[in-house]
């Protein structure tokens, strides 16, 4: 057990107190920069975001890459699972926070979520831009040594198991990101996408593109997972608000989509309901 003098260690944040109140900050410093006395009004949101995670401001090329990625991720689209989760909160009048929590939770998983990006970053760190190593990893995917709260992966990270060909937005995003500066992972992914897709049997996903960009920017797996979760929220928020306005009557309920597989009573009840 510890006494009352416990402190929070941080390399990110430092505060100087107001003279009349030790619980209010007069100055806040982020990695040495005075946030409200110097940074505010001079740096973009993306530059500040980068500073928070990397403790240094990005060079213009890094900032442009992160900003472009942030725009690409900002709205996964109305059919995305995480956005649908947020809309389910919105349509029933749930709290705004629950809409974002729903988007974060559903957008956190192995399929197109933060966990997939984390695993992709691990692959990049181990395999680099070595096609032979990627081919081997795809043909013999690593098995989890132990069970975990996360469910086992059911597809190779970064690729869409329900895809057919690589969707145009994914191709467009990758092409643009690869054109910004000379980020080797992105150029390599653009140039070898078809080979990788042939090996996995699935098209590259936006999560796979995002992971390559985070790797190119030098983020760790943990940082990439966190940023991916964060950057995908704007669309979820906007769509939740929009559907809240429309209301549940104008939102799918999948009224006849539930199909019983169990016993005759069950099926009989289902038929009665469907008839209604």
């Amino acid at each position: 057990m510890t006494d009352g003098q416990e402190t929070i260690k941080s390399s990110i944040w430092f505060e100087e107190a107001e003279a009349d109140n030790p619980y209010a900050a007069a100055s806040c410093y982020c990695s040495g920069y005075d946030v409200y006395g110097d940074l505010l009004g001079k740096v973009s949101w993306v530059q500040y975001l980068y500073l928070l995670f990397k403790l240094d401001l990005p060079d213009p090329q890094h900032a442009r890459l992160l900003e472009t990625l942030a725009v690409a991720l900002a709205n996964p689209g109305i059919r995305d699972h995480s956005v649908r989760a947020a809309m389910n909160a919105g349509v029933a009048g749930s709290t705004k926070a629950s809409a974002l929590m729903a988007a974060v939770a559903v957008g956190a998983g192995n399929l197109g979520g933060g966990r997939e990006v984390y695993l992709c970053l691990d692959l990049w760190h181990h395999l680099g831009s070595d096609m032979e190593k990627w081919q081997h990893a795809i043909s013999q995917p690593s098995q989890d040594e132990r069970i975990d709260v996360w469910l086992p992966m059911e597809h190779f990270p970064g690729f869409d198991p329900n895809g057919v060909t690589c969707p145009r937005p994914v191709v467009q995003t990758l092409a643009l990101l690869a054109d910004i500066g000379s980020y080797q992972p992105l150029i390599w992914l653009r140039d070898h996408r078809s080979e990788l897709e042939a090996a996995t049997g699935y098209p590259l996903s936006m999560a796979g593109v995002a992971a390559a960009a985070f790797h190119a920017l030098g983020f760790s797996s943990e940082q990439a997972e966190m940023l991916y979760l964060l950057l995908r929220l704007p669309g979820a928020a906007a769509h939740a608000l929009e559907q809240e306005q429309h209301g549940w009557r104008q939102y799918p309920f999948f009224g006849t989509a539930l199909k019983p597989m169990a016993d005759a009573d069950y099926q009989s009840l289902m038929k009665t309901t469907e008839a209604k």
Binding site: I8, K9, S10, Y23, Y29, G32, A63
Partner: peptide, 23 residues
């Protein structure tokens, strides 16, 4: 459990000024 500013044990970069950041 309020935290006063002094409860932050800062271990990061020294105080610095922004210089010609290009957006």
């Amino acid at each position: 459990f309020p935290l006063s500013c002094s409860k932050i044990q800062y271990q990061g970069a020294g105080i610095r000024r922004l210089e010609n950041v290009k957006k």
